[in-house]
Design a binder for these strands. Structure first.
Lengths: 156, 156
DNA sequence: TATTGTTATACTCTATAACTATA
DNA sequence: TATAGTTATAGAGTATAACAATA
């Protein structure tokens, strides 16, 4: 008697009678589907502030790390630098961040939140927590913490 | 004493001294990062068979559900039908699947694996399990099952 | 009237090549 | 020589509109 690889006795057949067991057995499938659900909810909740997930991430990091550089963000977030240029320019045009010369490296520019940017990040953080709570609404608090811990363990 | 929202006492500061706590507190961030790591590993492992994750998913579902239709795949996988048309055409051109008229619905076409397609799916399934095991190598077997269960709970 | 599948197309996201200024 | 940042562009992924055939 082989145990199902997904470690569950849950019904993996849809109401239409499609057998999805073969794909739900894979972590990659479940991780991607869950990620898309959570992200879609985030985007919907954050729509009033017109912030994409990556925008919020950059703003939040700039808030916690004044003077953070583009190259640091690229390395941390796995973003290609040419793509980050556009993103930063947009945040700058919206008056949310400022770029100041790096104190010791003449090539680099440090990112700093403006007062307006700080205010938006504060609002966005509240919304993001609400979105997260909603997306993980089917989980208990303990399950949510476990999920977060296991996910970090995978990508770190 | 407020417990950190991410439910961890782990060091959330990178070696460069960047404070990432503010973003790692969010399930959306961790889920996306983990998903990308797992998917990238999958793509690398599956490269010899030239199958993208979505290709493997469709082939595997066609294998488990002979005669499955495009509309069923669209609904199940959250794919827009125009995009699925191209995908199926490619799999058909590679001789991996056949499309046969639906027995009762004259509009629909059922998908069926060819012998060649079944052989490729078998190889791909082995590779996919290896990829999954590698991507979750930092997790114990119990943790892996827990993660899979919690992810399904989020997106189902 | 609704649904399946299709074509064409636009939009977003991501990746690469080549360049400058500085380390 | 290597790195930070930039420009231009290509590619992949995803979404929308409009249509024909069938339910």
């Amino acid at each position: 008697m082989t145990e199902p690889r997904n470690g569950s006795n849950a019904d993996v057949t849809t109401s239409e009678g499609i057998d999805t067991q073969v794909i739900e057995a894979f972590l990659g499938y479940s991780a991607r589907r869950a990620s898309l659900v959570i992200l879609a909810n985030f985007v919907r909740r954050m729509a009033p502030l017109a912030l994409r997930p990556v925008d919020f991430t950059v703003l939040a990091l700039a808030g916690s790390n004044p003077g953070i550089t583009s190259s640091q963000l690229c390395q941390l977030l796995d973003i290609q630098s040419p793509n980050l240029v556009v993103l930063i320019k947009q945040l700058q045009d919206r008056g949310l961040i400022e770029r100041r010369p790096h104190p010791t490296d003449g090539r680099a520019m440090g990112l700093h939140l403006t007062a307006s940017g700080q205010g938006l990040v504060d609002q966005a953080t509240t919304l993001a927590h609400e979105a997260d709570d909603e997306a993980s609404g089917k989980l208990s608090a303990a399950e949510r913490q476990t999920l977060a811990r296991l996910l970090r363990k995978v990508y770190q």
